[in-house]
């Protein structure tokens, strides 16, 4: 019986929710909160709940007052509360001004010998209309001096890469296909294989949620930052907590902080 109810006393323990190893969201989270050691070893506590999609993380955090998780700010909803980190809340302004640290750029990558059709789509993405679509999705767009003029081109543009960028491109492609005769074909995989397909000429545009590596830049590939995505640390809406230091987030995920009373002081509640 001891085995069965051994953990009944842990009613005030922090319910730590992480993503699966290998997920882009998890790797940018562990990088932002120093949860990797110098050998690249992930320090996240081994007994953290592993949820394999954003939706499941949100469902768990919104139903458990003791839960903590993380998600892209584009997926935030009213059902969960995003806490500020070191006093800075994960808003669009703070991400643009780079005050909020836990962010990453979403990139589209092209070859120097880009086709005119692909170029047309890129200029649509970077145009004010493209930026508005990106902002409407909850990401932070990057200002470019780019006007889009409807062209008479037709054909097909193949886009491949990161599943973190793909939803943005999918939405952009819908709007783009409505006003243009060019068809966008989107293949989701991950940043590395997207960039590889681009350099091998399998696709016209690659998608990446990480910066290009030295050897990828050597191939002459040109990256465009189209948006910033920030990772928000989320807690249940009923949780009195509103601010954590990045040190505390790190310790919670390492398992050094196990109970809420260790981070919620009287001032906070």
């Amino acid at each position: 019986m001891l085995f069965i109810f051994a953990s009944c006393g842990e009613r005030n323990s922090i319910h730590v929710i992480s993503r699966e190893a290998g997920s882009g969201t998890r790797s940018s989270f562990t990088e932002s909160f120093t949860l990797v050691d110098e050998n690249g070893y992930d320090l996240t506590r081994a007994d953290a709940d592993i949820n394999d999609s954003t939706g499941v993380v949100l469902a768990n955090v919104s139903s458990d007052e003791k839960a903590v998780g993380y998600t892209s700010i584009a997926s935030l909803s009213d059902k969960v509360k995003a806490v500020s980190i070191d006093g800075i809340s994960p808003t669009a302004e703070n991400v643009i001004s780079q005050k909020y640290k836990a962010s990453r750029a979403l990139l589209v990558v092209v070859r120097p010998d880009i086709s005119t059709e692909a170029n047309d789509f890129i200029s649509f993405i970077l145009s004010p209309l493209g930026r508005r679509i990106i902002n409407d999705m909850g990401y932070v767009s990057v200002p470019y001096d780019c006007e889009y003029k409807k062209s008479a081109l037709s054909g097909k543009v193949t886009v491949a890469g990161s599943s973190s960028v793909a939803p943005v491109i999918e939405r952009l492609a819908e709007e783009y296909e409505a006003i243009s005769d060019i068809e966008i074909e989107l293949q989701q995989s991950d940043s590395s294989s997207g960039i590889r397909s681009l350099s091998e000429g399998i696709c016209d545009i690659g998608l990446s949620s990480r910066n290009l590596k030295e050897d990828e830049l050597m191939l002459g590939l040109v990256p465009y930052e189209i948006a910033y995505d920030a990772l928000a640390v989320i807690v249940n809406a009923k949780n009195p907590l509103s601010d954590l230091s990045s040190q505390q987030v790190s310790e919670i995920y390492k398992g050094d902080i196990k109970y809420w009373y260790e981070v919620i002081d009287d001032e906070n509640s």
Binding site: A46, A48, D49, I50
Partner: peptide, 18 residues
């Protein structure tokens, strides 16, 4: 199972643990 089990790759210690 993935959606409800917690998925921690550690030795199970209690039936209310993941």
């Amino acid at each position: 199972v993935i959606m409800v089990a917690g998925n921690q790759s550690v030795m199970p210690s209690s039936i209310i643990k993941g």
